[in-house]
Amino acid sequence: MLSFDEKRKIINGFAALEEKPVSMKRYNYHYPASKREKTVLVKHLHPNGNGFVYAPYLEESAKLDKEGYVNIYDVTEAELIQLIEQALTYMDSDGGAYQEGDTFVYQNDTGELLKLVFENKMWIVYAYDNVEAVFKSLDQAESYLADEGFFEEQE
């Protein structure tokens, strides 16, 4: 396990991040150039080695808190660097090449239709006018639809 000082040195190695002290001797690291609403990339790095990296892009099986942060208590140096690099890439994007309201229609073998709509930087699956599911990424939404037997209609 990396110590607090080792983690702090690694995080401070990213020039784009700004270190800001918070309560109980903890530090947050802000990414002011973020194209997303969130600017805190690392939150609550504590002298006991605990802390969190913003990672809403990780698979749903990852242990994320309700705000989309993953715990870095027992990560390796390589894992910490990778998490920060991925978070920077994510925060540098504004949701991808999709525009608000982009809609795709999916159909199963029995002819049922579902709509996949890009809204508020999220992918929403609609059955008629009802929300069926909400996903943070297109890959997650498409995987869900495929698991349920739905495939994009070809024009």
Rank of each mutant, 00 (worst) to 15 (best):
N28Q: 07
V53P: 05
L113Y: 07
E79D: 13
V70M: 06
H30R: 14
F151V: 08
E60K: 15
A16N: 07
D139S: 14
T110F: 03
I10W: 00
V40Q: 02
P56A: 07
S61A: 11
E152Y: 04
E60H: 12
L138D: 12
H44E: 14
V40P: 00
S137H: 11
K66I: 03
F104K: 13
F151Q: 09
E60I: 10
K38T: 10
D102V: 09
R36T: 00
A146V: 14
T103M: 12
V42L: 10
L45F: 04
A62D: 02
P32Q: 02
G68W: 01
D5Q: 14
E132A: 07
F14W: 04
V117I: 14
A97W: 10
A55V: 07
R8F: 02
L41C: 05
G68P: 08
G149C: 09
G101V: 06
Y29M: 04
Y106S: 04
I81D: 01
Y31G: 01
N130L: 10
L113M: 12
Y54C: 05
L41G: 01
M122R: 12
V125I: 15
Q154C: 11
L58P: 03
E119Q: 13
N120Q: 13
K43I: 00
R26L: 06
V70K: 03
L80K: 09
L17V: 05
K35R: 14
G13L: 08
V131S: 03
V40H: 01
A133W: 00
K43E: 06
Q82H: 11
T76R: 12
D5K: 08
Q99I: 14
E19W: 03
K35V: 08
Q86W: 11
H46R: 10
M91H: 03
V42F: 08
Y54P: 02
G111V: 07
S143Y: 09
G49D: 10
L80S: 09
K43D: 02
D65P: 06
F150L: 06
R26G: 00
Y126P: 06
T76M: 09
E77F: 10
K38W: 04
M122G: 04
E112G: 05
L145Q: 05
E100A: 15
S93I: 05
F150G: 02
L17P: 03
T39F: 02
Y106W: 04
P21M: 09
L88H: 05
K63Q: 13
